[in-house]
């Protein structure tokens, strides 16, 4: 088609390709490893360049039972949430998660305040129960994370996990741990391109390779700031395609975590009688958040609800066709 050729935008850069998980050949035990990133075009615009790797659909698992998750979510997941390993196994085997995102929520001083060793035991159990790549996320308390994450990193040494998150103000401990144990890193920067870049520069100045980094620019749920995330990610993607290496890293989105905080996802039928079926409304909300962010350029989608995961995998399949 002539016009489709005229429409092609010539990009000089591409997204950095990052490998999640390590198989036996690379010193790990994962039987499935995943490549993310690599796109040399705007999202799914096959007529102008390749999108070699499909976005990854990961599922969030906690190291403790998440008692305050909304009812439709807890009901769908059932009792497996009482056991992180069982939960992770179910996500992979029954719901088809490409990767597991283990959130060490219970290590937070205000929650269970569990020890680094306890957290590491959960990491090991999840690794043993699954064969997909693992993302490990701290409790977002810098001090505690700096105690816990190095121990977890070591417990998972060689598995090429993705560990998060480093920030402008707190990165040295985690960078050193990931360097020693062969993991990759998530750099966190709240909807700000300059800070995102700054984090990537700080980390790479420590000698950490860019092909082991992913950006988390924070995720706004549909209805709650998604437009900021959308535009920041879109700007980041444009910068990357324009050959800005420091912005060319794949992007992770915490979709489930944010979408399930929305009133539209949580409200019961009694509270919102005109908003439709309360059992599926949250699933739609989570899925809509993910589908929209995929259009801005997102590489790893961390989801919560099994039905949203199944549907999103279908969407990804159709986008990559």
């Amino acid at each position: 088609m002539k016009l489709m050729e005229t429409a092609v935008e010539k990009w000089s850069g591409a997204i950095q390709e990052v490998t999640l998980g390590a198989g036996a050949d690379a010193g790990g035990t994962r039987t499935s490893t995943i490549k993310v990133g690599g796109a040399a075009a705007l999202p799914f615009m096959d007529f102008e360049g390749v999108t070699p790797n499909a976005p990854v659909v990961a599922m969030e698992v906690w190291d403790c039972e998440p008692t305050d998750w909304p009812a439709p979510l807890r009901e769908a997941l059932g009792d497996v949430v009482k056991d992180p390993a069982e939960w992770a196994r179910t996500c992979v085997e029954e719901y088809g998660a490409d990767a597991i995102c283990l959130k060490l929520a219970n290590t937070h001083p205000d929650e269970g305040n569990t020890s680094p060793q306890e957290a590491a035991a959960v990491v090991k159990a999840v690794l043993a129960a699954t064969s997909v790549p693992l993302i490990i996320w701290g409790c977002e308390n810098d001090e505690k994370d700096n105690d816990v994450m190095p121990v977890c990193s070591q417990a998972a040494a060689g598995e090429r996990c993705l560990l998060g998150a480093v920030t402008e103000d707190n990165y040295k401990t985690l960078v050193a741990a990931c360097q020693a144990d062969g993991h990759s890193l998530i750099g966190l920067s709240p909807i700000d391109i300059n800070i995102a870049k700054q984090v990537n520069i700080l980390v790479s100045e420590m000698g950490f390779p860019l092909d082991r980094m992913v950006m988390y620019q924070t995720t706004g749920a549909l209805g709650y700031g998604i437009e900021y995330t959308y535009s920041i990610q879109e700007r980041g993607r444009l910068a990357a395609l324009g050959a800005d290496k420091m912005m060319a890293l794949p992007v992770i989105c915490m979709v489930g975590q944010e979408a399930w905080r929305a009133k539209e996802a949580k409200a019961t039928a009694e509270e919102q009688p005109t908003w439709g079926n309360a059992d599926t409304r949250g699933v739609y909300w989570e899925l809509a958040t993910a589908a929209t962010l995929l259009q801005a350029g997102s590489d790893i989608m961390v989801m919560r609800h099994p039905d949203a995961v199944r549907a999103l995998k279908g969407v990804v399949g159709n986008l990559m066709k």
Binding site: L222, I226, E227, Y230, S231, E264, W275, N277, A288
Partner: peptide, 24 residues
């Protein structure tokens, strides 16, 4: 036609078509 399926689509429109030059 179901509200739970339409509400997200309408919200995407509301969000994407806000003016980024003006804070919400």
């Amino acid at each position: 036609t179901e509200p739970e399926a339409l509400l997200p689509i309408l919200t995407v429109r509301q969000n994407i078509y806000t003016d980024p030059r003006k804070p919400i």
